[in-house]
Design a protein around this nucleic acid. Structure first.
Lengths: 111, 111
DNA sequence: ATATTATGTAACTTTTAAGTTACTCAAATG
DNA sequence: CATTTGAGTAACTTAAAAGTTACATAATAT
């Protein structure tokens, strides 16, 4: 049952610290303590954020001895992209409507 | 000072009701009460959600008499897309690394 | 003009999220 | 093997979101 998303990706991204963590991980793989060092909040608080990001499919965690290295995971990002792409259809439709409007109602400008 | 985003788009999307509202608006323009009728929560609660979505740039509101019609606004969605596209670079980099690895270390498969 | 309808907002409560400290445990290290 | 280090978690506090009811106001309808 590894790598199964159990949390909401939108909820996961609503916290600025979590987005910051993702940004850090886009630069390099890091273990929990290294991540925590970059924040003002306590290590356990960071630990919780990591769990949320993991549960939402934004990171993978690999144990190396007692250290746990975090890396970005495409899954969460994909889910987000999918959501957005649903709305792309809306904008496409809107553009088509505008186009039709311009062609039928304003085919001949009054000048 | 119209249409200036004052709230965080991620925070706005973290609530399921608000995402549901966006989904409804992708089907048709609706006024506040019409939206509220589709939800179990009270009308003022919906009113607040609408405000959050507006502040985050996800919808526009047009008054028609005493009614206020809500429509999707591209701005919020664009902000989200921009955020995601930043991370696209990460995956591109990862792919390139993998490619290089395969070419240099495994140019000749052992079989 | 009165009644009704669409909406906003203030004041408050409830729920949820985020943070903290204190403790635990297992892996590394002297 | 005693100590240090990296990390998880439980119990609790604090802070922020989400919801409610009650009230206000302006536009429409009767």
């Amino acid at each position: 049952m590894a790598n199964v998303k159990t949390a909401d990706c939108f909820q996961a991204l609503s916290d600025p610290s979590r987005r910051e963590i993702l940004l850090m991980l886009s630069k390099e793989k890091q273990n929990i303590n290294a991540i925590a060092d970059s924040f003002d909040i306590s290590r356990p608080a960071v630990s919780k954020h990591i769990k949320v990001l993991y549960d939402a499919g934004f990171i993978t965690i690999t144990a190396q001895g007692r250290e746990r290295y975090c890396e970005l995971n495409q899954q969460g990002f994909d889910e987000l992209k999918e959501w957005i792409s649903f709305f792309e259809a809306y904008w496409t439709k809107r553009l088509k409507q505008l186009d039709t409007f311009l062609k039928t109602k304003h085919a001949k400008p009054k000048k």
